[in-house]
Simulated assay, not measured.
Amino acid sequence: MEQVVELTNGAWPLLLNAGKALIVLVLGWIAAGAISGMVRRRINATPQIDPTLGNFVASLVKWVVLAMVLVAVLGIFGIQATSIVAILGAASLAIGLALQGTLSDLAAGVMLVVFRPYKLGQYVDIGGTAGTVKDLNLFTTELVTPDNVQIIVPNGQSWGSVITNYSAHETRRVDLVFGIDYGDSADKAIEIIHSVTSADKRVLADPEPWVKVTNLGDSSVDLTARVWCAADDYWDVKFELTKAVKEAFDAKGISIPYPHSVEIKKEA
């Protein structure tokens, strides 16, 4: 009986400390989220500061607060901060090897924020993975595809890959290719394309729209039209001009041929 009482008395402080540690962890996690959210809102409310920096700093603040919470939890169990530093110092090599990927992502995240090859809201292609940048934090970049699929790219992979930023500049060039029949007038078709593009107010006058015969295909004479527009209007201009030119060709008697072949029989 005395042994049971003695074990109970010995286990009680441990259970009490575990309960305190759990409370500190929960409150710390909530506090970290609240503080990082407040930092993000304050920074993003300043027009002079890019929102990408706000998200990154908020992520940094969250992890710093969580690190402080971890130190506090270890302190509850009697492990002092100086002891933690000593343990980490002795195990620095092992930790570095184990977390080299994570540390690489962290360093890459800093480089992405400093050099800013992309920002929040921009449409980018990172090593063959394309989407709109939704978030950039300490370790990862979050992309959202046009069909609303979430893609998480580690910052180390992002920084080490070829980055194509489709939203970096205010304007983009739209290339359109139209095939017409060999029996139709190329000059007439070019005139029609010019009239359609000039009627679209989204098409910029400078640089001037360009339409040329660019290829003599097996079944068609190919005309390429190059126009410039605001980057945000790129897809609408591309799709709507394609439709408008096709309808104008139909109205003016310009045909878009189907691929076909001609069989020639030679007499023996």
Rank of each mutant, 00 (worst) to 15 (best):
W29V: 11
V39M: 03
Q100W: 15
V39D: 03
M38E: 09
L7V: 13
A58G: 14
A21V: 10
R40L: 13
L97A: 10
W63M: 14
A108T: 04
R41F: 07
A32M: 03
M38I: 12
I35L: 04
G33E: 07
L74V: 00
A81Q: 09
Q80P: 06
L14N: 11
D50Y: 00
T46L: 15
T102G: 02
I79Y: 09
P47F: 04
A98S: 13
S92A: 15
G109R: 05
G101S: 05
L99N: 06
L97E: 07
V61N: 03
S83H: 11
L16V: 14
I79G: 01
L60D: 09
A31P: 08
M68D: 08
D50Q: 08
F56K: 01
A72D: 00
L14S: 08
N55K: 05
P51Y: 03
A31H: 02
A107C: 11
A81R: 01
M68Y: 12
V85H: 00
L103Y: 14
L112W: 06
A67G: 15
S83P: 05
A21H: 13
V64C: 08
V71H: 00
I35H: 00
F77M: 04
V26A: 12
S92V: 12
R42D: 10
L27H: 06
F77A: 07
G101R: 09
V110G: 03
N44E: 14
Q80K: 11
Q48V: 07
S59Y: 04
L66K: 03
Q48G: 11
M38C: 08
G28H: 06
Q80L: 01
L15E: 06
P47Q: 06
S59T: 07
W12K: 15
L53V: 15
L93M: 15
A91K: 05
I95L: 12
I35S: 00
I49Q: 09
I23T: 11
P51C: 01
L99E: 05
L74P: 06
S83R: 08
D105K: 01
A58Y: 04
A34Y: 15
